Each structure stands twice: as C-alpha cells, then as structure tokens.
Simulated scan of single mutants.
Amino acid sequence: MVHTAPTAPVLCTFPNDQELQAALAHFIVKAQKESIEKKGRFTVAISGGSLPKQLAGLIDNPAVKWDKWQVFYADERVVPLDHEDSNHHLNTRELFSKVPIPRQNIHTIDPSLADDLEELADAYEKELIREFAMKDSARFPIFDLVLLGIGPDGHTCSLFPGHALLSEEDRWVAYIEDSPKPPPRRVTLTLPVLNHAARIAFVVTGESKADVLHTILDEPEKGLPASRVRPVYPGHIYWFTDEAAAAKVQYPRTPFKL
C-alpha cells in the first residue's frame, strides 16, 4: 500500500457566528457544485453537537441542490431517532426540517438493531457500501465533505482519547459501548474513513474550546483524536472557528474570501 502525506490544515477565523455561517455555507455550496459537476451527487457526513446550528446559512439558500445530497452521520448515538440524544433528531430539528431534502437521501442507523451493536454497525456499513463501493470501487468511502465538531477533550465523532477505536484500520463503521460521554452506546465512522474524505471541515466556536483547539493545532504530537484527522493527499482539512475559540492558537490563519 502506498501511503501519502496528509495535507496541512487551513484555519479560518471569524469575529461572530453570522460571518462564520455565511463563509461555511459558501464553502459547502462550492464543494457541492464541484462534486455534482464531477459525478452528479454530493456525499456528506455530518456530526451533531453545536454543529447543526452553524449550518443556518444553508436554509433558504437557492444554491443548495438538496435532491443531489446523500447524507450520512459521522457518528450516532444508539437511541431512537426522535430521542433528544440522537444526532439525526438534532440535525432534523436544526436543518433538515427546514429544507426540501428528500427523506430517502438521509441515511440513518436502524434503531431496531439496537440490541446488537455489532449488527447495527454492520448494517450501517452496508448502507455506505451501497452508496460508495458500487459506484467508486474504493477501499474506503471518499466523502465529498465531512462536517465535524470537537469535544473539550479533543474527541471528534465518537473517537475518544486513548480508546482502542483510534487504532481501527479496516472497518468503515465501528461501535462503542463504553463512551466516556453519555450516552455510552454509539456507532462512528473510523479514522481511515475520515482521512480518505475529499474535504473535512471542523466547526468550532466559543471560549470553552480555546485550550483544546490550541492543543489540536499547535501540539498535534499529543495525538488527540481530532489531531489525527488529516486527510491524505489530495484531501483537504479546514477549520472554521470564531475568535474566541482560536484565541490561544498559534497556528497561522488563512483569510477566507467569499
């Protein structure tokens, strides 16, 4: 296997949520346009947390071609889809209920398999295989865009510091039943999947993330999970942050041009 070097992160900071959301929407629409022109569809993986609220710039945006989107979840909590802890519920409340995306274009876990996490993870992996392997013939799925956040401990998706899942090299989707953050039972995309994406965009806001963002970007050798998300060439990784979150970061900023 030929290993290629990861690309360096691009850090873009904004003075407030309004400007960040506008830039993020512009970035997503541009990625969408390139993907649809290339292959007729736009494949996206999305997480939960505070991220969905930052996607407000996509609502009522005429440039978004919702019928071309195929949406997966970067991770999901093993709860009913209408549960407050569900990433699908959160994204539906904040975004999908407000836009005309076809329901069949949003790929959720199957909660009926909740009693067997391995079967549930396998079923979700097969959902990805139907979308990617049949069309792209890739060792790992190549998402056009993965949208992520981070936790105060540096976790992303459901990949936590010191956890064995950080060493997973083969699976596309893995399960965790001992998450240090509740709820404990989850499924998650693995690092190889994240690192084969065409684009990764982290969205991080607030003073509470200042210390961990400094560690992730300025001290990647500490190996926090989010530091390990480094797409291999020709993939790209971007950080969209506000000034409060980036206050302690020494990593160079890149001006964002609309």
Rank of each mutant, 00 (worst) to 15 (best):
V204L: 14
Y233E: 11
E243L: 14
L20E: 02
E127P: 01
V204Y: 02
K222H: 14
F256Q: 03
G49F: 05
K126L: 04
V249W: 05
S179L: 08
D17T: 11
A114M: 07
E94I: 05
H196E: 10
S47I: 00
L24M: 10
S86W: 06
K38H: 15
F143Q: 06
Q250F: 14
L213D: 09
H163K: 12
Q70L: 13
G40Q: 01
E94K: 12
V78H: 13
E76F: 03
S35R: 04
Y233H: 09
L166K: 08
I106R: 15
D144E: 06
V212F: 06
L189T: 04
Q104T: 11
N105I: 13
L55P: 03
Y124I: 05
R139S: 11
T156I: 02
G154T: 09
V99H: 12
A174I: 02
P141S: 06
A74D: 02
V79D: 11
P183E: 14
I176L: 07
I101E: 00
K257C: 05
N16K: 07
A138F: 14
K248M: 11
A123G: 02
V10H: 13
V193G: 01
V78D: 04
V64D: 00
V29A: 02
L213Q: 12
S97P: 06
P184K: 15
L120C: 09
I200Y: 09
S47K: 14
V146W: 05
G48N: 07
W69E: 00
E34V: 08
L11G: 09
D144C: 00
A5W: 06
P141F: 03
L224E: 08
P62I: 04
I237F: 10
S167F: 11
H88E: 04
P6E: 05
F132P: 07
M1R: 07
I28E: 02
N87L: 02
V78E: 05
V203I: 12
V173G: 00
R139I: 09
E127W: 01
Q21M: 11
I176G: 07
S227P: 10
L20V: 08
A45T: 03
R103V: 09
A8H: 10
V212R: 01
K209G: 11
E168P: 11
H163W: 07
P62K: 03
N91W: 03
F240V: 03
K135Y: 09
Y233D: 08
R77S: 05
P111A: 12
V212S: 01
R199D: 04
M134D: 12
P231A: 07
N16A: 13
H3N: 01
H83G: 15
K65G: 00
P6A: 13
Y124F: 05
R77Q: 11
T4D: 09
T43I: 06
E94T: 06
L113V: 10
D242E: 09
T156D: 01
T43Y: 01
L51C: 06
T13W: 07
G48Y: 09
I109Y: 08
P152K: 08
F202W: 10
P192V: 09
G151K: 03
Y238P: 00
R186E: 12
H107G: 08
V229D: 10
